[in-house]
Simulated scan of single mutants.
Amino acid sequence: MATSERTYTDEEVEARLKKELPHWYLEGGWIRRKYKTNSWKGTLMVINTVGHLSEAAWHHPDITASYAWVEVRLMNHAAKGITDKDFSLAKKIEEVVHWQPGLEGGALEGCPKDDMRFAYIKYDKPKA
């Protein structure tokens, strides 16, 4: 039997986004994030990543895409609002899409930064 999930007020959502997911925003009842990519290849990689994570979590976003961007929108359809599921999935999407192994050190070096043939996502600039 399904249990009802707590939905957050707009003020609570905005406060959590500011603290936990600063590149996401609330609009029209959805939490949203637009990822900029370098090409269609990058757009498809982001879509597939979001699709895999969403299916594994059994919580599915709406996605809109174009040649060089992907917009992800999350809202718990069953609860008719923003719930902990939305925040949890948004955090996992953010973590995986923006993962840069070259910054961590270790055996995984990451994509070559000086050759645009391998570029696929435009990473957010670090906050000062």
Rank of each mutant, 00 (worst) to 15 (best):
S66M: 14
H59A: 02
H52E: 07
N76E: 06
S88M: 11
S4E: 13
F118V: 09
V46D: 02
G28V: 02
F87W: 09
M1C: 00
L21R: 06
T43Y: 01
T3R: 13
F118Y: 15
E11M: 02
G110E: 07
K34A: 11
L17Q: 03
T3Q: 12
H98C: 10
Q100W: 13
S66Q: 15
D124R: 13
Q100P: 03
R33I: 00
W69S: 12
A56E: 12
R73I: 10
F118G: 10
K85V: 04
W99V: 09
M116P: 01
A79S: 07
R16N: 09
Y67P: 04
T37K: 07
T7H: 02
T64M: 14
D10F: 05
G42K: 03
D114T: 08
M1P: 09
D84Q: 12
L17P: 01
E20P: 05
D62R: 15
W40N: 09
E95D: 12
E104T: 08
N48W: 01
K19W: 05
E95C: 08
G105P: 01
V50Q: 05
T64Q: 14
P112F: 08
E95A: 14
G51A: 15
T43V: 02
K36Q: 10
H60C: 05
V97L: 10
K127R: 11
A90V: 05
A68F: 00
M75S: 14
M1E: 00
A78N: 11
R32N: 14
M75A: 13
E94I: 01
K18T: 13
K91H: 00
H77N: 06
W40T: 11
A57R: 02
Y67Q: 04
R6F: 02
K113P: 00
A15Q: 14
L89E: 04
N38C: 10
V97P: 04
E14W: 02
S88P: 01
K92D: 10
K18I: 08
H59Y: 04
V13L: 09
R33M: 07
N76S: 13
N38Q: 11
A2I: 13
I47C: 14
K125Y: 03
W58D: 10
A128L: 13
D114N: 14
V96F: 11
S88K: 15
K91C: 00
A15L: 11
T3D: 12
T43S: 08
L108M: 15
K80H: 09
G42R: 04
E104M: 11
K85H: 11
D86P: 05
R16F: 12
P22T: 10
V50P: 05
N48Y: 01
L17T: 05
D115Y: 07
